[in-house]
Simulated assay, not measured.
Amino acid sequence: MDSNISIWIIKSLLILALIYLAYIDWRTLRLPNAITVPLIVFGITFNWASDLHLTSPSSAILGALLGYASLWTLNAGYRLLQNRNGIGMGDAKLLGALGAWLGWGSLPNILLIASATGIAGGIIWLKCRGHQLQQAFPFGPFLVIAGIIELLWPQLLPTLILPKLV
């Protein structure tokens, strides 16, 4: 099979899994370990064992570790200040999975895009649902949107968006 076709099949399957995770999080405010943990393992394995890898094996491992650790650390700091969690560990595992598939270098773009879309989505979520600011909000769908953008158009932020802002 042609390598271009194979990589698009892999990317399509990854996108389907991510969309399914976004749907689950949107409806339940949960990202199940049964999906996020295998995504981390498959991302590292794919980039390690396949000639079609999306990033280097070391970047995949570092991406998984940094993706998870960055949100874990952010939550730990918030918990110290507020005595409650500020972000779910499912979100940390999802970012770890995106790092495993796309490498550690993609994490800043993913976090920036997810944060920007999450702010807009959060405002809409709160307005439509009449929630107060202290209630839970699903961040996973915005990580998914950012991950798909980074998967399909990895140079979107540095080449098209940021130069226009400066």
Rank of each mutant, 00 (worst) to 15 (best):
S3N: 09
S3E: 14
S6G: 13
I7C: 09
I7L: 14
I9C: 12
I10Y: 13
L13Q: 04
L14I: 09
L18Q: 03
L18C: 05
L18M: 14
I19P: 08
I19C: 10
Y20N: 04
L21H: 04
T28P: 06
L31D: 00
T36A: 04
P38I: 00
I40H: 00
F42Q: 01
F42P: 01
G43Y: 02
I44D: 01
I44Y: 01
T45F: 11
T45R: 07
F46K: 04
D51V: 02
H53I: 06
T55H: 09
S59C: 07
I61N: 01
L62V: 14
G63P: 03
L66F: 08
S70M: 09
S70L: 12
L71T: 03
W72D: 04
T73Q: 03
L74K: 03
G77R: 12
R79K: 15
R84F: 13
N85C: 06
I87R: 01
G90M: 10
D91Y: 09
D91H: 07
K93E: 03
L95R: 01
L95G: 03
L95E: 05
G99F: 04
W104N: 01
G105H: 13
S106C: 05
N109M: 08
I110S: 10
L111D: 11
A114I: 03
S115N: 08
A116C: 14
G118T: 07
A120R: 04
G121R: 11
G122K: 04
G122P: 07
I123R: 06
C128K: 11
R129T: 15
Q132C: 08
L133A: 13
L133W: 15
L133Y: 07
Q134V: 10
Q134S: 15
Q134T: 14
P138A: 12
F139W: 14
F139A: 07
P141N: 10
F142A: 07
L143F: 00
A146S: 15
A146W: 04
L151D: 06
W153H: 08
P154A: 06
Q155Y: 01
I161L: 12
I161Q: 06
I161D: 03
L162T: 12
P163K: 03
